[in-house]
Amino acid sequence: MSKTYKQVPFAAIVPSPTVSNEHMVTGNWRYLRPVVDKGQCTQCKTCWIFCPDACVDFSKDEGVDFNLKYCKGCGVCSSVCPVGAISRVPELDFDE
């Protein structure tokens, strides 16, 4: 049986991603999920600025949201939140 190799583009030069790097999905690393209490959240965006993985989404209407496809669950957002609005919940507590 002949071995299958992965094809790579010329000189391994690959296009830059535009929204996220689909080839390195990291959400499955997470064992504690960040959960925001929107009632407590002051929309100061501190969690947003400090996320090493750009996984805190923010909009004026929706407030804080997490990109769980990539969030590694490091918990930096929870630690930097000045009002303690972000808790870390074990992944096993969620159905999905």
Binding site: Y5, A11, A12, I13
Partner: peptide, 28 residues
Amino acid sequence: PQFRLDVNNPVIMGPQIEPEMGPPLEWD
């Protein structure tokens, strides 16, 4: 060149690769 460092057509040059990608690059 077909590829260059161009902010209007961004590319990643010289990334790390999976082991299965190394031999094909060397074959090239």
